[in-house]
Amino acid sequence: MSAVIERVAPLRWTAALLAALGLRGRTLVIAVPMLWLLIFFLVPFLVVAKLSVSEPAIAMPPYLPLVERDGARMTISLSFENFGYLFDDPLYIKAYFFSIRLAFFSAVLTLLIGYPIAYYIARSSEARRSVLLMLVILPFWTSFLLRVYAWQGFLRSNGVINNFLLWTGIIDQPLVMLQTNFAVYLGIVYTYLPFMILPLYANLVKLDEALLEASADLGGRPLPTFFHVTLPLSMPGIIAGFMLVFVPAIGEFVIPELLGGPDTLMIGRVLWNEFFSNRDWPTASAVAIAMLIALVIPIMILRTAQQRVEEE
C-alpha cells in the first residue's frame, strides 16, 4: 500500500498534506472516500457549470478559456449564449418535455405490470418466493445492451413477431414496430421492470396478513380490500419503484438510440449528439445543467411524497 502511495503523485501529496496537518486515523478514514467523491463527483459538476458559460471554439479542447490575462488586465468573459440557444431552438424544449413525458408513462406502465408480479411473489410460499425473485433478478445480470439488441430482432419488419403474425395469417403486411416510440416504451418497461418489482416486493412482503383477514372478516370483498388496505399500505414501495424507473429513464440514451426512430428525441440522445457529432462541448454542458435542473424537480416531489407516506 505504501508503495502505491509513493508512486502515485496525487496520493503522495495527499498523504503528506494530511501528515503535515497532524491528521491520522479517524480523519484519514473519512478523508479517503470524501476526497474521492469530491474530486470525481462534485468537482466535475463545477467544471460542467463553468464550461456551460464558455464560448465554443474550433480547437482542442473546443472552448475558449473564461479568464484571459492580457498583461496586467484580466478579463472574465461569461457567455450565457449556450443557454439562450437552448431556449431559442424548439428542439431542446421539445426534447425535454418529450423525455419527461415518455419516462413518466413508461414508469406508470412498469408499475401496472410490476405490481401484480410483485404481489404474487410476496404472497407465494417461501421456497417459491426465492426462485421467483431469482428469475426477476437474473436478466439484470446479463448485458443490458444485448437485451435491447434482442428486442431489435423481435421488432424489425422481418423479425420474430412479424414472422409469427404473418405465418398465422393475422396480418398480411409486416407491422412497423422498430424505430417507433412504441418500441422505446417497450424497451424501457422491459429493462426497468426488475427495478420496479424489487422495491414493491420488499414492501408487500412486510404487509401484515392479519389486516387482510380482518377486512375479509368484516365482509370486505377482495377488490375493495385491495384498494382500501393493500394499495395505500404499499405506497412507499410504489414511490420507491417509480423513482428507480422514472428518474433514470429521463436520461436514457441506449434505448431511444437503438429502438427509437429519428424523431424519438430524448434529452440524453440530444446531449450525446451535441457532444459526439457536433463536438460542441459548451452546448452539451448547458444541456447537462438544464437536464440536472429538470431532474431535481421530480426527485424533490417524489422525496416529499415518500416522507409524507412514511409519516402516516
Binding site: 462534485l42 466535475p44 447537462a288
Partner: peptide
C-alpha cells in the same frame, strides 16, 4: 449526499462531467 447522488445520475451527465474534469 455525494454517496447517494450517483445512483440517480443519468449516465450521459456522469460521462460528460468526468471527461471535462
Amino acid at each position: 449526499g455525494m454517496s447517494a447522488a450517483p445512483l440517480v445520475m443519468p449516465d450521459v451527465i456522469t460521462g460528460l462531467s468526468l471527461l471535462l474534469l
